[in-house]
Structures are given as structure tokens and as C-alpha cells.
């Protein structure tokens, strides 16, 4: 039972970290609370389902789906969000991103109906770890999530482009003074966030259902994690994702999985009262 807790906790945590990383990155760099973030997860899951069931090979379906969500993310940032940001009212962005997510939900409901779907596993072979049999699809989701997170962290910290992201996150004006095109950095960051959320949506699709309302729970969890970790803090988000992932496994183990969201929100509520700056206490990309 303990092994099950450990392994499932790690799998849940890694997927949450992947989603929260993108959410946190968008806030940390562009200062935007993107309520569309969960929708990328849903769009990618539906697209990969559509392409695979249309007979397109899995790998190409995944690549196409991810490219489309990246372009969607770039488009949303480049046009409506940057336009609204110039207007200077962050509430407009909140309303726009939330409204767009609901629009996407109803669009997919119209196109695919309210049924639940899933896709074939990308990796079928079950593996025994600590005496527990882990389905291949879950192990695959864990490995892909961890590798993606490591690659993103390396990209941000080691590449020239990543340094521009870092500079923009710390001071947009100063970054422009040293020649950084911050509008372009915002667009690339949103595209990267969409990619991360999209990867999460695709890797969970073989073992969780694809449905028109899947974005909302995901968004709530990502939001809870970044509040817990400290808005805009990437290390904080990763720590908080693991805390929440293990908490979810623990609640499922000792109580019921249907109560995990309630426990999430209670934890967030407690943090908002006693430590509103989150675990890390400040924005640290």
C-alpha cells in the first residue's frame, strides 16, 4: 500500500508539475494569470484523439497536436492578450482567458459531444516497481513529464533565449534596455506554456478521460499549486506540485479520491491566510 502511495504520488506530482510549470512561467514572465491554461491541456487531448482516430500515426498525431496548441498559445498572447495588456487592466485578461476557455469547452462539446474518450496507450508494457504493477501508460506519463521539466529548466537557465526569459521575468523595462524584444518573449513563453500543458493533456489521455470539462479541474489544480508554491516561482511550483501530488495520493489512500479537490482548496485557503506569498515567498523563475 505504501509503495502504491509512493509511486502514484510521484506520477501525479510530475504531471501536476508539468502543468503548473507553464502556468507559473506565464505569470512569472508576462505577469499574466492565464485562465486558458487548462484549455491547452484539453485542446491537445482532443486533437490527438481526433488525429489518431482519423488514422494518423500516433507520433505524427502528437507532434501535430502540440504544434497546434503552441500556435494557439502564441496567437492568444500576440494578439488579444498583449492588446488587453496595453490597455492596462489585468481584469480584462482574466475575463478574456476564462471566457475563451468556456468557448473552447462548448466548441469541443459541439464537435465531439459530451461523451468521454480515451486514446490507446503510447507504451503498453506494465512494470513492477517496489512490488507494485505500474501500467505502461502511467509510467510513460511520469517519464515524459520529468524529462520535459528537466529540458525546460535547462532551456531557461542555459540557453541565450532562456536568459532573455529570465531577464524579462525580473524587469521587463531593463530587459528592453539591453535589447530584449519582450513582446516576442511573452509570445514564446505562452507558446511554451501551451506546449507543457498540451504534453500533460496528451500523456494522461490513455488513462484519464478526455471530456469537454477536463480543463477546469486541471486549471484549479494548477492554480492551487502556483498559489502554494508562490505565484511566478518555478522552483516553488515544482515543490508544491509534488506536495499536492502526494497529498492527492494520500487522500485517495485514506479517504476517497473524490475529495482531493476539496483538500486542495482547503490547503490553498490556509496558505492564502497564513502565507499568501506561497512556499518560495517571491517570484523566482
Amino acid at each position: 500500500m505504501f509503495a502504491n502511495f509512493l509511486i502514484n504520488g510521484a506520477i501525479n506530482s510530475s504531471i501536476y508539475a508539468l502543468i503548473a510549470l507553464g502556468f507559473s512561467l506565464t505569470f512569472g514572465v508576462a505577469g499574466i494569470v492565464n485562465l486558458y491554461h487548462g484549455a491547452y491541456y484539453m485542446v491537445a487531448a482532443y486533437l490527438v484523439y481526433f488525429f489518431i482516430t482519423s488514422g494518423i500515426p500516433s507520433f505524427i498525431s502528437v507532434v501535430l497536436s502540440l504544434l497546434i496548441v503552441m500556435v494557439l498559445g502564441a496567437f492568444l498572447m500576440k494578439y488579444p492578450i498583449l492588446y488587453l495588456q496595453k490597455k492596462g487592466e489585468s481584469i480584462y485578461i482574466l475575463i478574456f482567458t476564462l471566457g475563451s476557455a468556456y468557448f473552447t469547452q462548448y466548441l469541443f462539446k459541439l464537435l465531439f459531444g459530451a461523451s468521454y474518450y480515451s486514446i490507446p496507450s503510447f507504451y503498453d508494457k506494465s512494470t513492477k516497481i517496489l512490488g507494485e504493477v505500474i501500467p505502461g501508460s502511467r509510467l510513460f506519463a511520469f517519464i515524459v513529464s520529468v524529462i520535459t521539466i528537466i529540458l525546460v529548466l535547462l532551456f531557461i537557465n542555459k540557453t541565450k533565449f532562456g536568459k532573455q526569459i529570465l531577464a524579462t521575468s525580473q524587469d521587463k523595462y531593463a530587459a528592453e534596455l539591453v535589447g530584449v524584444n519582450t513582446s516576442m518573449i511573452f509570445v514564446v513563453t505562452m507558446s511554451l506554456a501551451a506546449l507543457l500543458s498540451g504534453i500533460a493533456g496528451i500523456v494522461i489521455s490513455p488513462f484519464l478521460s478526455i471530456s469537454p470539462n477536463m480543463w477546469l479541474t486541471t486549471l484549479l489544480k494548477a492554480f492551487s499549486i502556483v498559489i502554494l508554491g508562490g505565484l511566478g516561482s518555478i522552483p516553488g511550483s515544482i515543490i508544491a506540485a509534488f506536495f499536492m501530488g502526494y497529498l492527492e495520493s494520500f487522500v485517495s489512500l485514506v479517504w476517497t479520491s473524490s475529495m482531493t479537490e476539496v483538500v486542495f482548496l482547503v490547503i490553498v485557503f490556509i496558505f492564502l491566510i497564513f502565507r499568501p506569498t506561497g512556499i518560495m515567498g517571491k517570484k523566482t523563475i
Binding site: K163, L166, A167, A174
Partner: peptide, 18 residues
């Protein structure tokens, strides 16, 4: 308007990105 969480060296190197 420095990048406060970056070191002196990183602050200086960031200006040579281009």
C-alpha cells in the same frame, strides 16, 4: 533597474546577448 536575483556577472553578460 538591475536584475536583482542575478549576480553581477549575469547582469553584465545579459547585456552582451546580441
Amino acid at each position: 533597474r538591475l536584475f536583482p536575483d542575478l549576480t553581477v556577472k549575469q547582469n553584465l553578460e545579459i547585456a552582451t546577448m546580441f
